[in-house]
């Protein structure tokens, strides 16, 4: 049941508890309790909106940085990641397999701002071996949502 609730909330966190209860055929009280416990356990972190900022006037750039780093004795990559994710400019940090170690997403107002952040904040860190910066040109899909989905229902009435 926990997974079913999570899947619904992942689709749309604006569903009311009553709607979720109806969809899953359980009581509202049970939904209340389950969701409270999911927050409690830190499984649900936050409800947020998925925004296509491209459609607004806001000026911003996003970059994916490939970082190769030296893991720290006794603390491995976690300590390194922590030093990096504390920056508010850093939107996400992943530990990766393959050609580099940490995948970091950075957001800034301009190309220069992001480039400087990498050059001045990330690259000089003693455990950072190399950085490779890739700027995002266009976002097509995020969190399973395609950004330019036609809204119109193209189905027609036929013979029922």
């Amino acid at each position: 049941m926990e997974e079913k609730i999570l899947r619904l909330l992942e689709q749309d966190c604006c569903y009311t508890h009553a709607q979720i209860a109806t969809m899953l055929g359980i009581s509202v009280e049970e939904v209340d309790a389950q969701i409270a416990s999911l927050f409690e356990k830190g499984i649900i972190l936050k409800y947020i909106a998925l925004i296509d900022w491209e459609k607004t006037d806001r000026e911003f750039v996003t970059a994916h940085i490939e970082l190769r780093v030296t893991p720290q004795r006794g603390e491995g990559f976690d300590k390194v990641a922590e030093r990096i994710y504390q920056y508010p400019e850093v939107k996400s940090v992943y530990l990766m397999s393959g050609g580099y170690d940490l995948g970091v997403t950075i957001e800034g107002r301009t190309l220069k701002e992001v480039a400087l952040f990498v050059a001045e904040k990330l690259a000089p860190m003693e455990f950072v071996l190399s950085t490779k910066t890739h700027f995002v040109l266009k976002k097509y899909k995020q969190n399973g949502i395609i950004f330019d989905t036609p809204k119109e229902d193209e189905r027609r009435m036929i013979s029922l």
Binding site: L8, Q19, T22, M23, L24, G25
Partner: peptide
């Protein structure tokens, strides 16, 4: 569909 069925029936 089952989710929707329950919502619309209710």
């Amino acid at each position: 569909y089952d989710h929707r069925r329950r919502i619309i029936l209710e």
